[in-house]
Simulated assay, not measured.
Amino acid sequence: MTSAGERPRVLTAADGDVWRITLDRPETGNAIDPAMAAELAAALRARPDDARTVLLLGNGERFCVGGDVRAFAAVDDPGSYVGQLAHDWHQVVRALLYCPVPVVAGVQGAVAGAGIGLIGACDIVVCARSTRIRPAYGAIGYSPDGGSSWALTRALGAPRALELMLTNGALTAAEAHMFGLVARLVEDEEVHASAIALAQSVAAGPVRAMVRARALVRQAAVRTLEQQLDDEARLIAESAGDPEGREGVRAFVEKRQPDFRGAV
């Protein structure tokens, strides 16, 4: 029998045109170690060409508690170990940020440490109502990584993000929703089913236009209105000339539902 330390940390499955990726170290709260980082990066690279949405889930009671602190304690040179792990994990975050299709996540139980950066890199996060979100770095004397400082500052603003990080505080799911860190709240027992249904719905839409919209939203906070207007004009022209845009306009004129899956 394969031990928990040897079995895969990440599971993948094609569910129609949704590429489902599931963190599978439930006995550790899906804690991040080098194998988890490598397998998640590989899972994102392995997305089939016909998959129109990525769905990220976590098995067990907790979505992701961040880095595997027990592993940190067991190494002789934690600085080198943690630094390399952060580098590898940041490649995962970048892969999510620049994924060619929309990314949906369903989270439950606990999201901590680098797990916050993970959900911050996703496009839509469905969150169970009992979830707690905690930076947790200060509790072990570490500064943030994984994009968690970016995600929290973007959602909460600098004063609230600092208060949360410097006091080792936590957000409830309702607070995370209010601040915009997560997009939807659902009952605990519904989180995976709701995230799956949402991912399937997104996959039926104009995914290339969605990716253009994602780029505009992410740039809006750091650009002038003039710069944003220029990019909006460029990207809507791309969308209008794209088979998706052509199909959407035809469907509107013909008073029918558009078939974006066939718009290639």
Rank of each mutant, 00 (worst) to 15 (best):
243 P>N: 04
258 P>N: 02
197 A>T: 14
104 V>I: 15
181 L>D: 02
157 G>F: 02
33 D>R: 01
228 Q>T: 14
148 S>V: 14
255 K>L: 13
92 V>M: 02
49 D>T: 11
83 G>H: 04
72 F>H: 08
68 D>P: 01
213 A>V: 07
199 A>M: 08
24 D>F: 13
13 A>D: 11
3 S>K: 03
101 V>Q: 04
68 D>E: 04
1 M>T: 10
87 H>W: 12
56 L>G: 07
44 L>W: 01
210 M>K: 09
5 G>M: 08
264 V>S: 14
42 A>F: 04
99 C>Q: 05
226 E>D: 15
77 D>A: 03
4 A>G: 12
73 A>G: 12
231 D>H: 07
140 I>Q: 08
254 E>P: 08
199 A>T: 06
137 Y>M: 12
184 R>L: 11
254 E>I: 01
107 V>M: 02
94 R>P: 13
130 S>V: 01
264 V>Y: 13
150 W>P: 08
89 W>Y: 06
171 L>T: 04
128 A>H: 07
15 D>C: 09
229 L>Q: 08
193 A>R: 06
204 A>C: 07
247 E>W: 04
255 K>F: 11
104 V>Q: 11
46 A>S: 05
36 M>P: 06
103 V>E: 00
109 G>Q: 05
181 L>V: 04
172 T>H: 03
39 E>Y: 03
169 G>T: 05
147 G>A: 13
78 P>C: 01
177 H>Q: 00
222 V>P: 04
250 R>T: 09
95 A>F: 02
223 R>H: 09
91 Q>T: 13
130 S>K: 03
228 Q>H: 15
117 G>R: 12
155 A>M: 04
49 D>Y: 10
65 V>I: 06
88 D>A: 03
21 I>V: 14
210 M>Y: 12
82 V>G: 11
41 A>D: 07
140 I>A: 07
115 G>I: 10
226 E>I: 05
152 L>I: 07
121 A>Q: 12
127 C>M: 05
136 A>I: 10
100 P>R: 08
214 R>M: 05
31 A>H: 03
260 F>S: 06
29 G>R: 00
245 G>S: 09
260 F>G: 03
69 V>R: 01
121 A>R: 11
144 P>C: 12
96 L>M: 06
108 Q>M: 06
11 L>W: 13
85 L>I: 02
156 L>C: 01
113 G>M: 06
173 A>F: 02
70 R>I: 04
108 Q>H: 14
260 F>M: 06
152 L>W: 03
